[in-house]
Write a protein that binds this DNA or RNA. Structure first.
Lengths: 141, 141
DNA sequence: GATCTATATTCCTTAAAGAGAATACGAAGT
DNA sequence: ACTTCGTATTCTCTTTAAGGAATATAGATC
């Protein structure tokens, strides 16, 4: 992986926020939506961008796509992500993201990174992500 | 300075090379040309890019423009430049630049960062940079 | 098999950046 | 004054990216 490509991935705020959150662990798209409070297209596109460049990996889990940092990071990427963490320590936007993530987190620990986790299927009323209103919900409002 | 802007500055190889060289000390444009072996427009434009974003400062010295890293760097920039240094340690392109810089360096130590240094004016035959042929030279060839 | 949910892709518009050729500018030197 | 030298700017072209709206797809549920 070229160094420049890493920096290209880092030169967009949304992607920085995604990576910052990802440093805490795997997550599904709709959780990213909830944490960053950005529209689905935006999240999805930027995750795709990161994915094609190898900064994140993705796997399917039911309806959900779980994104995470690759197990073994190339040295340069590792260094730069550490550097990012460092730089972001004082930046409100990024810290707010982490706070919102933490509020989501209790569920995550038990249920995994999926929107409601793999066990979710067994629970009634927990089928929808609910973090963002669907188009039909929006029409009702 | 926004973090993203730093990364925007870092997402071009030429600029990475410039910064890598600049980490060794101030330098004039024609020395950059010699070290990077890139055309003048390219060097000048990228230095301009870095300058408008505050990553480097410039001062005039006779005909020469001396570029250097600002005395007191913002924390994020400092961290990222250190990180860059680290990442680049094993990369041939960047190391070759530093070698070529070192070959130029003896003159630099005594004469300063200008193409032939401030004292140059007093020496005969040392008025031209000579690292890159001028258009008229090229016509002759 | 129709429907719903989470996510991806396509299409469009707009903006920015990179490269190179040519030209302009400012400071010396003659 | 004119030239020369080092450097910056302008112009043009091509590529890339970002955002949003709309639409497509894949898996799960009924």
């Amino acid at each position: 992986m070229e160094l420049v490509q890493i920096y290209e991935c880092l030169c967009d705020v949304t992607r920085l926020r995604l990576l910052n959150v990802l440093a805490q662990g795997p997550l599904c798209v709709c959780h990213f939506q909830a944490v960053l409070r950005e529209p689905q297209v935006k999240i999805s596109k930027h995750l795709g961008y990161l994915r094609t460049r190898g900064l994140v990996t993705a796997r399917r889990e039911g309806n959900w796509m779980i994104y995470e940092l690759p197990a073994k990071l190339p040295a340069e990427l590792r260094t730069n992500l550490a550097c990012l963490q460092d730089c972001v320590r004082e930046q409100p936007v990024f810290q707010r993201d982490l706070e919102r993530l933490r509020k989501l987190a209790p569920g995550l620990a038990e249920n995994g990174p999926g929107c409601c986790g793999p066990t979710r299927r067994k629970r009634a009323g927990a089928l929808r992500c609910g973090d963002t209103p669907s188009p039909s919900d929006r029409r009702k409002a």
